[in-house]
Simulated assay, not measured.
Amino acid sequence: MIAFESRKRAAAPDRTNPLNITLPFSFIDYYKKFRGHSVEHALRKSNVDFVKWSSQGMLRMSPDAMNALFKPTIDSIIEHLRDLFQKPEVSTVKFLFLVGGFAEAPLLQQAVQAAFGDKCRIIIPQDVGLTILKGAVLFGLDPAVIKVRRSPLTYGVGVLNRYVEGKHPPEKLLVKDGTRWCTDVFDKFIAADQSVALGELVKRSYTPAKPSQLVIVINVYSSERDNVSFITDPGVRKCGTLRLDLTGTGGTAPARREIQTLMQFGDTEIKAMAVDVATSKSVKVGIDFLNY
């Protein structure tokens, strides 16, 4: 992978000579052990003509093959940048910095220059490949160095709201104990691409559907879109659950039970908490993107 990373950065649109990529001995040995023949044999038997095996024991890729390999990635980067430049808050940007290891590749540099060179100045700093590493080290030494982040997703919780005729779809209507509810409502806490300060706290207050409830379950959801109305909308996924015990009021439950739900943003982890105001009981959860 190290050899391939090096060749990736050396790929250029005007390159004419092929690129040689050294394969790790462990890979060559593994392939021969489990496939019964060598990598060289496999390449010679294949119909692929843009990747060959050199006499020095390396993969030899033609410049056209390397360019074609990264074209989908570069096209996606250019398309994403075009979408960003359509937003009013970045439409007047005069400087565009390329950072990260791939920024060293002339393929990407020339594509960005061709697409946006007339809009802003393209700057490629020295040691551009170490930029991400330096940022990670600085953040590790002082997490407060990053004051504001942009939320990559929209976050909210699923709730019941009073059903409003003409506003809510009929299929979301739920009638319980004579009360008409709209189910699966996505109550937004923060929108995708919204700026959030370090430790920013968003609070909402809810009331259980029935005062006699003994437990309340609040599910946390996320979406790449910012115009989400219901938790059943396409692209909405559950990423956390808050389960709060509502017992222990010491007598008759209050007529209106207040449950405060808080979400903290801006750090490397998003935290959610629910608090029963009547008993001060609370439950916390970290947003988990792996197990949902």
Rank of each mutant, 00 (worst) to 15 (best):
A10R: 11
D14R: 13
I21Q: 09
I21C: 12
I28G: 00
Y30P: 04
R35S: 08
H37Q: 14
V39Y: 03
V39F: 05
A42M: 04
R44Y: 10
V51A: 06
V51M: 10
S55R: 15
Q56V: 07
Q56Y: 13
M66C: 06
D75K: 05
S76T: 07
I77V: 14
S91M: 07
V93Y: 07
G100T: 02
A105N: 04
P106W: 00
Q109W: 08
Q110G: 08
F116W: 01
F116V: 00
K119R: 15
I124C: 04
Q126D: 15
T131W: 04
K134F: 01
G135P: 00
L138A: 13
L138I: 06
A144W: 06
K147G: 03
V148Y: 15
R150A: 13
R162H: 15
E165M: 07
K176F: 06
G178K: 03
T179V: 15
R180V: 02
T183N: 10
K188R: 10
I190A: 02
Q194T: 06
V196D: 06
G199C: 09
S205F: 05
I216D: 11
V220N: 06
V220F: 11
S222Y: 09
E224I: 11
N227G: 01
G235V: 09
K238N: 13
L244I: 07
D245Y: 04
L246W: 09
G248M: 07
G251C: 09
G251N: 05
Q260M: 08
T261Q: 03
T261R: 00
G266N: 12
K271T: 12
A272H: 01
A274H: 04
V275G: 05
D288V: 00
